[in-house]
């Protein structure tokens, strides 16, 4: 008991930092009013960035674009529902889709995959309209796993070293070699996949492969597979705004490649979402009075979560083991 109280105390202590670097509160902790205006995301951002003047980013001593610093996450409803939707419940306000292409903002599942998608949405057991009686899968997010590309949807600090881009967050990291090394065997599969980066002009391009296909893009079961390849594009569009794009390739479950996009704001550069796009309206200015405000303290997600996992499991939710597309 005292340990749990202590854990809550720690969460409160780190809130200062979380507010700065991660505008979105911990998953499921934000509550939204029914009349909240629809939160802007990919559609608004794609239209805005098409009109932006060309920005030339500063360079590192190695001569590559300097993306270093602490960056906010996508914000909005904290990646709880990927596609365009109206208000569903207090944790799922109306929000534009993360998907910018296809233009309708829908994930272009093949007919087989769309059936699976509908089953999974109907089996969430969240009390949403149209649900079936059966509870299907627990969200992999509930067992504290970091998966690609959801890591990129959250806040992180980018560090650059010769031959590497390193991204660190409050509880994990990514190391992206940019030295031209080949991908590892696609027979080896990982929750985070493996990443290989390269610079194309001002853009960091990261190929993510070797994915195990057991993660979700959001909390509603939008899925990929172990055949999926993702190509991320990170580019500064002004000194304090980092454009993020990820294109998802998988002909076994999608009819075409599709793209998500949103901007990230440099931590401590003022309130509001970057260029008004993300819904992080409560992002405060950097709290300079607290010397610990910029530090990242332990979150230890899984260690404190076994009780809630036991609860989820006892409700009949199953472990999502990925989909097996027809040959």
């Amino acid at each position: 008991m005292s340990r749990r109280v202590l854990a809550v105390g720690m969460v409160l202590t780190i809130v200062g930092w979380v507010l700065i670097l991660a505008p979105e509160p911990v998953a499921g902790q934000a509550f939204w009013a029914k009349d909240t205006p629809k939160l802007p995301m990919a559609k608004t951002w794609a239209a805005q960035k098409a009109k932006l003047p060309r920005y030339t980013p500063p360079r590192t001593p190695d001569g590559v674009p300097d993306l270093q610093g602490a960056w906010s996450g996508a914000g909005g409803d904290n990646n709880s529902y990927l596609e365009d939707h109206e208000f569903v419940d207090v944790t799922t306000p109306a929000q534009e889709s993360f998907v910018s292409d296809p233009p309708d903002g829908r994930v272009p599942y093949t007919p087989w995959a769309l059936e699976r998608r509908k089953e999974m949405l109907a089996g969430l057991g969240r009390g949403w309209p149209g649900e079936s009686a059966e509870r299907l899968y627990a969200s992999p997010g509930s067992y504290c796993l970091n998966v690609a590309p959801v890591f990129s949807f959250d806040a992180q600090e980018i560090i650059q070293k010769p031959g590497y881009v390193i991204m660190v967050s409050d509880d994990t990291y990514r190391v992206i070699p940019t030295d031209g090394r080949p991908a590892i065997s696609q027979n080896a599969k990982f929750w985070m996949g493996t990443s290989r980066g390269r610079w194309e002009g001002d853009t960091l391009v990261v190929e993510v492969t070797s994915l195990n296909g057991k993660g979700w893009f959001d909390s509603t079961g939008q899925f990929y597979s172990e055949n999926t390849r993702m190509v991320e594009r990170w580019r500064l569009v002004d000194a304090n705004t980092l454009d993020y794009e990820v294109t998802v390739h998988d002909p076994t479950i999608y009819t075409r490649p599709w793209t998500m996009t949103f901007p990230k704001r440099r931590a401590g550069t003022g309130p509001g979402g970057p260029r008004g796009v993300s819904a992080a309206s409560s992002l405060p200015a950097l709290a300079t009075k607290d010397p610990y405000a910029i530090e990242l303290w332990e979150t230890a997600c899984f260690e404190g979560n076994t009780e809630s996992l036991a609860g989820i499991r006892s409700l009949g939710y199953k472990f999502f083991n990925g989909v097996t597309p027809p040959k």
Binding site: L145, P177, A188, F190, W191, T194, F319
Partner: peptide, 16 residues
Amino acid sequence: ELLEYQCHAYLLEQEW
């Protein structure tokens, strides 16, 4: 390079 040992993922997959 660092790869991945997601201990609790393997444990949950086995035990869930």
